[in-house]
Simulated assay, not measured.
Amino acid sequence: MYQTTIKKPVELVGIGLHKGSAVKLRLEPLDSNSGIIFYRSDVDVAIPLIPANVVDTKMATVIGRDGYIISTIEHMLSAVYAYGIDNLKIIVDADEVPVMDGSSASFCMLLDEAGRQELDAPKKVMKIKKDIIIQEGDKYVKLSPSPDLKYDFTIKFAHPVIQKQEYVLHFNKQSYREEISRARTFGFLHEVQYLRSKGLALGGSLENAVVLDEKKVLNPEGLRFPDEFVRHKILDAIGDMALIGMNFVGNYEAMAGSHDLNHKLTLELLKNPENYEVIELVGEKTKELEKAYA
């Protein structure tokens, strides 16, 4: 199995979540071993997707370089990861990726339009060799060895619509498209009002997020899944784990995980080479590993 990029450049325009302004997003192919590179066309700054370039994880995963940032990258990356794209240039003309409908469905459609192109270098995946856990109070995120890839996420909210939800995704491109990609980001009305008072979430609306008051969902169309909240948390986690730099094989487990805990997990994983093994997907022995990314 070989590394991939997209067949042709594609682009879209959407609203930025925090500033509420139009943002142009363009995807372009890259050669083997280039990785994922973000580029701010408005200031001519390239920001490679590596953990060292993460500058904020409070409300979204934010990368930066030389004082310039790109925010809310996780939904786009979640789709790129699920499609097994190894090398890609992601161009935006502002400091955030457009939020679209709050899920990764629009990015999946964009990647479908772009197509996938095999390159000349073997695809690499990271095999998790040891248990790695980041825990803060009763919240934790964990990676553990496994012959396949599974995301197991649990959330608890003292809200009548959410309460406790758990979802297990047996990962492949098809299961991601059908079970995860349409799950939208969510927030509470009092949080949105506070953020707007600080000049943030100006682009947030019922068109791009599930919003709840103290008792109910405010979106007139309701939920896309009864457990849309935990499914979106898996969507976020997949995007955050893309910071590893390649697809991985192992189990991801979380209890009330967050962007911040996911970032700390990637740093802990990469800190010690004994935690993982990088495998080139060549030969019969890797056939099983190839299935998730076919």
Rank of each mutant, 00 (worst) to 15 (best):
V92C: 02
L243I: 00
K130P: 11
E11S: 15
A114D: 05
A183C: 14
Q174R: 13
V13T: 13
I238C: 04
R40D: 06
I134Q: 07
Q135K: 08
L202H: 01
V168N: 04
V141W: 02
K130W: 13
T286S: 12
E113K: 04
K233Q: 01
I69C: 08
K271Q: 13
D131P: 03
D120H: 11
M59I: 11
M59Y: 12
G204C: 14
L269H: 06
D260A: 07
T266W: 12
D260Q: 06
A292M: 14
D112P: 00
S34I: 06
M246C: 10
L88M: 10
T266M: 11
I234V: 09
S205W: 01
T185Q: 05
G14R: 01
G115Q: 10
A242N: 08
N251Q: 14
N208E: 09
E280R: 02
D56C: 02
S104V: 08
A105E: 15
I132W: 05
I37G: 00
V249K: 00
N247Q: 10
I134C: 07
V282W: 05
Y39Q: 15
Y81W: 09
L195S: 11
Y83D: 15
T57F: 11
F38G: 05
Y167I: 04
E113R: 10
S106L: 09
D120G: 12
K19V: 09
